[in-house]
Design a protein around this nucleic acid. Sequence first.
DNA 1: AACCATACGGACCATCGGTCCGCTTAGCAA
DNA 2: TTGCTAAGCGGACCGATGGTCCGTATGGTT
Lengths: 203, 203
Amino acid sequence: MVQRKERADALRNRQAVLAAADGLFARSPSPRSVSMDDVAAAAGVGKGTLFRRFGDRTGLIRALYEARIQPLRDAVESGPPPLGPSTQPHDRVEGLLDAALGFKLDNRHLALALEEVGSGSPYQAAHYTWWHRTLQETLERIPSVADGEFIAHALLAATRADLVEHLAGQEHMTAERMRSELAAYVSRVLPSASGSGKNGESS
Amino acid sequence: MVQRKERADALRNRQAVLAAADGLFARSPSPRSVSMDDVAAAAGVGKGTLFRRFGDRTGLIRALYEARIQPLRDAVESGPPPLGPSTQPHDRVEGLLDAALGFKLDNRHLALALEEVGSGSPYQAAHYTWWHRTLQETLERIPSVADGEFIAHALLAATRADLVEHLAGQEHMTAERMRSELAAYVSRVLPSASGSGKNGESS
DNA sequence: AACCATACGGACCATCGGTCCGCTTAGCAA
DNA sequence: TTGCTAAGCGGACCGATGGTCCGTATGGTT
């Protein structure tokens, strides 16, 4: 066998830690104000346990994030339109960005925590690479898009957690408005958003 | 009088601190690895001096940043095209974004330090508000742009320091390529990029 | 029951931003 | 030049935090 079974107490503690951390991040105004000691105390475990399980603070946040985003990831990789691979490219780009935004709106605290994680920029995180690759590939299926790399980065940047947080928090922009603003923006970037036969390019 | 003259030693120390900090940030791979103790030591002053002058870490970084960006700010507020107020809106949007990108390319360490400053998101910093307001106002002079608020945020997001750092560092994208990619992207967002008399709106 | 790999937990450590306060000195006035 | 004082200095010190270590406890197995 390649790995032993997880011990019962370990399992219990892991779940307790995840639940506690999730609650703390959700309640806290800023991820910064949630310390590892807080998490350990709230979960009723020792600090050592926490670090053994998750390696470091980043690992804990990442574990929380992965658990939350899994369904969305599945929907994108093997679900039906408007997210799955069978979606028409143009619609899928809109779908992907709307989904990314929606996810960050629904999980502001986690997305914020993950992006502002002390060690390294958000661009080194595995989940970002995945989003970017998926978006880039989809973009490049649209005829008028030759090189989707930068466009994918730029579009994803419009859904960054701290921007979302700023708009929703300081600027009091509603979720609805943000989604429609983003949709309008996307259709600016992509040609022939209306789906009519015309496109913006000659020849 | 409203304020006394700065004492000679205070002036000397202030300059020493700024020079030392600038050098350290420039050399360091990540702003995180430059501690206030490092700065104080490199400048040959005590820590107390450093904090009395700049308040806190953020204040120091901001002081460095402001000094560097002042010329650009002047060019935008009162200079000639393609940055000054007299520039045609469409061209000015392109000019502003290219300038923002260029600045971050030339001052990667500082821009990165300022954006990832522990306390608060980059969206609360005064300089961001200024960029955003300027860009929004310019955008809204373009007839087909009704609401420039979100578009301004989204476009500026494409020039974020950590994205620039990622593209230049990990992805080895040249400065030239980034600028042209950004320019192409901007012309996607804005209608009638060719500068012809046509616009996208009827009536 | 006995054994031991796994896991626990909290004392402990290093580092960092930031504060405090006794000492020094620049600048001014006589 | 001398003397005075406010401004400035600097580094010991502090509290918080992420992360480590290791003696102890326990789940699982034979």
